[in-house]
């Protein structure tokens, strides 16, 4: 998730979007690349979602020339061509493990609810997970801890402390109408969503991102 510089030059931003969407063509270990433009007021503007088969696959991405030469050209803080900017949210990389391509949404609207559950008890975290698991509506619904933020170097070894945003509820909807229908429903989850999660025990902060999935090269390949 990237904040863009203000102003960010349109041409290089388009090149970054293309590089991210096209990444799997150059780095076979990168699966299901898709990009999206966040529609909420959260100052994260560009989202790149993608997957890896394993930590070993992630490590091959990390040392791939395309990563260093092209993607980092636009995002690394000291690169003269950087088009991304700083944000005070403590957010950049967010990731989790899942047994299959649980996240897959062929087309439609992605909604990410990022939660700060650092003060939550194990029971409160479980209760929120239960809320997500029993909510009808989203075509995709994954509640998971943010394991990648602290293990970004090799996908396994902690290189930082507990991330500020500890959990994610990733949702997918067929279209905007389905998303609005979900938010308008009765029930504990919808109520929590409508109140910005302030009423839910254990939630210190919550933010939301929404974007239309823009599938990149090879999107869906992980399901073949």
């Amino acid at each position: 998730m990237y904040s863009l510089a203000d102003p960010a030059p349109a041409g290089p931003v388009a090149m970054l979007r293309h590089a991210l969407a096209d990444c799997g063509r150059h780095i076979p270990e990168v699966l299901d690349s898709a990009v999206g433009t966040n529609r909420t007021e959260v100052p994260l503007h560009l989202v790149w979602e993608h997957a890896y088969e394993s930590p070993a696959a992630y490590r091959r991405y990390m040392v791939h020339p395309f990563h260093a030469s092209v993607i980092d050209r636009f995002v690394l803080a000291d690169s003269p061509e950087r088009v991304t900017g700083h944000n005070d949210l403590g957010l950049g990389l967010f990731g989790y493990t899942c047994p299959g391509s649980d996240y897959y949404l062929a087309d439609g609207i992605r909604r990410l609810v990022l939660l700060d559950l650092r003060e939550a008890t194990a029971g409160e975290v479980a209760a929120i997970g239960g809320l997500a698991a029993t909510t009808a509506g989203p075509a995709v619904s994954v509640f998971a801890p943010n394991t990648m933020a602290a293990t970004w170097f090799d996908g396994e070894t902690p290189v930082g402390g507990t991330p500020e945003w500890t959990h994610l509820w990733e949702q997918g909807f067929e279209d905007d109408a389905a998303l609005e229908d979900h938010l308008g429903r009765d029930g504990a989850a919808a109520e929590a969503e409508r109140t910005g999660w302030r009423s839910v025990p254990g939630v210190s902060r919550a933010i939301e991102l929404r974007y239309r999935i823009e599938p990149g090269w090879g999107y869906g390949r992980a399901r073949d």
Binding site: R73, L76, P80, E81, R82
Partner: peptide
């Protein structure tokens, strides 16, 4: 120190490129 360098450089340059 790297972020400090990046911030300092950003305020001085008008454009540029990075190539491996």
């Amino acid at each position: 120190g790297w972020r400090a360098w990046a911030h300092r450089a950003e305020g001085l340059r008008r454009g540029g490129s990075r190539r491996f």
